[in-house]
């Protein structure tokens, strides 16, 4: 998966959870849950769908690493790459 595919997967997931949000103007450094008014239930559903799209499951302990669009993209990219490398071994 390329960086932009991962970013698209994140935005797709957010659009399904928060259909009324204007994601184009979302600040990449803004706290996602605050900006999009996601409760824990929304956020869990979003992570489940994202996991199905990207193959990356975010453990609860790492929720602090996926608070913004920017950090989440980095986290998923890194995790997906690690998984991919392990796959090639």
């Amino acid at each position: 998966m390329t960086d932009s595919e991962i970013r698209d997967a994140i935005l797709d997931g957010l659009a399904r959870i928060a259909p009324e949000a204007d994601l184009a103007s979302l600040d990449p450094k803004a706290n996602l849950r605050a900006a999009l008014d996601l409760d824990s239930f929304d956020f869990l559903r979003f992570l489940i769908e994202l996991g199905e799209a990207t193959g990356v499951e975010v453990p609860e302990a790492d929720y602090g690493c996926v608070t913004t669009l920017e950090t989440m993209s980095e986290y998923i990219t890194k995790a997906a790459r690690g998984r991919g490398q392990r796959g090639r071994d």
Partner: peptide, 9 residues
């Protein structure tokens, strides 16, 4: 697995 996670609620 993530699908089976519980929320504090």
């Amino acid at each position: 697995v993530i699908q089976a996670r519980l929320l504090p609620a």
